Computed example of a mutant assay.
Amino acid sequence: MSDKFTLDKRLAAESVFAAALPLCDVRLMREQRWFWLLLVPRVKGAAEIFDLSAAQRAQSMEEINFAAKGLQRAAPCDKINIGALGNIVRQLHIHIIARIKGDAGWPGPVWGRGARQDLPPAGQAARLTAIQAALAAGVGGDMGPKLSNLLP
Score class of each variant (00 low, 15 high):
residue 82 I to A: 06
residue 151 L to A: 07
residue 57 R to D: 04
residue 98 A to P: 04
residue 40 V to A: 10
residue 139 V to Y: 02
residue 9 K to R: 15
residue 42 R to C: 08
residue 89 V to H: 12
residue 101 K to Q: 14
residue 48 E to F: 12
residue 110 V to F: 02
residue 117 Q to M: 09
residue 48 E to D: 10
residue 100 I to R: 15
residue 5 F to C: 05
residue 52 L to A: 12
residue 50 F to D: 11
residue 48 E to C: 05
residue 6 T to W: 00
residue 93 H to K: 14
residue 30 R to A: 05
residue 42 R to K: 13
residue 51 D to L: 06
residue 127 R to C: 01
residue 139 V to T: 15
residue 44 K to D: 10
residue 84 A to W: 09
residue 147 L to H: 01
residue 3 D to F: 05
residue 35 F to P: 10
residue 80 I to H: 09
residue 127 R to N: 04
residue 151 L to C: 10
residue 39 L to W: 05
residue 62 E to M: 11
residue 38 L to Y: 13
residue 135 L to C: 05
residue 89 V to M: 08
residue 105 G to R: 02
residue 97 I to W: 01
residue 29 M to D: 00
residue 117 Q to V: 14
residue 64 I to W: 01
residue 57 R to P: 05
residue 36 W to D: 03
residue 100 I to D: 06
residue 136 A to E: 01
residue 29 M to S: 08
residue 88 I to T: 15
residue 148 S to F: 05
residue 122 A to E: 15
residue 56 Q to A: 11
residue 106 W to A: 04
residue 84 A to V: 00
residue 135 L to R: 07
residue 75 A to M: 12
residue 39 L to T: 13
residue 87 N to L: 06
residue 51 D to T: 05
residue 131 I to D: 07
residue 91 Q to H: 06
residue 78 D to S: 13
residue 151 L to H: 05
residue 63 E to Q: 10
residue 81 N to D: 12
residue 81 N to R: 09
residue 146 K to D: 14
residue 89 V to L: 02
residue 128 L to K: 08
residue 65 N to I: 01
residue 100 I to A: 09
residue 17 F to N: 10
residue 98 A to V: 02
residue 107 P to N: 02
residue 32 Q to L: 13
residue 9 K to S: 14
residue 119 L to H: 04
residue 25 D to I: 03
residue 7 L to M: 03
residue 132 Q to A: 14
residue 24 C to E: 04
residue 94 I to H: 10
residue 76 P to V: 09
residue 87 N to W: 03
residue 26 V to F: 07
residue 54 A to F: 03
residue 93 H to F: 04
residue 3 D to W: 09
residue 46 A to K: 11
residue 114 G to K: 11
residue 63 E to M: 05
residue 84 A to H: 01
residue 103 D to L: 00
residue 143 M to R: 12
residue 68 A to R: 14
residue 20 A to E: 15
residue 42 R to A: 04
residue 138 G to N: 00
residue 59 Q to N: 01
residue 77 C to T: 06
residue 12 A to R: 13
residue 54 A to I: 11
residue 94 I to E: 10
residue 68 A to S: 15
residue 53 S to Q: 07
residue 1 M to K: 07
residue 27 R to I: 12
residue 32 Q to I: 00
residue 7 L to Y: 10
residue 57 R to K: 13
residue 17 F to I: 05
residue 131 I to V: 14
residue 74 A to Q: 10
residue 121 P to R: 08
residue 137 A to T: 00
residue 147 L to D: 07
residue 76 P to L: 09
residue 92 L to D: 03
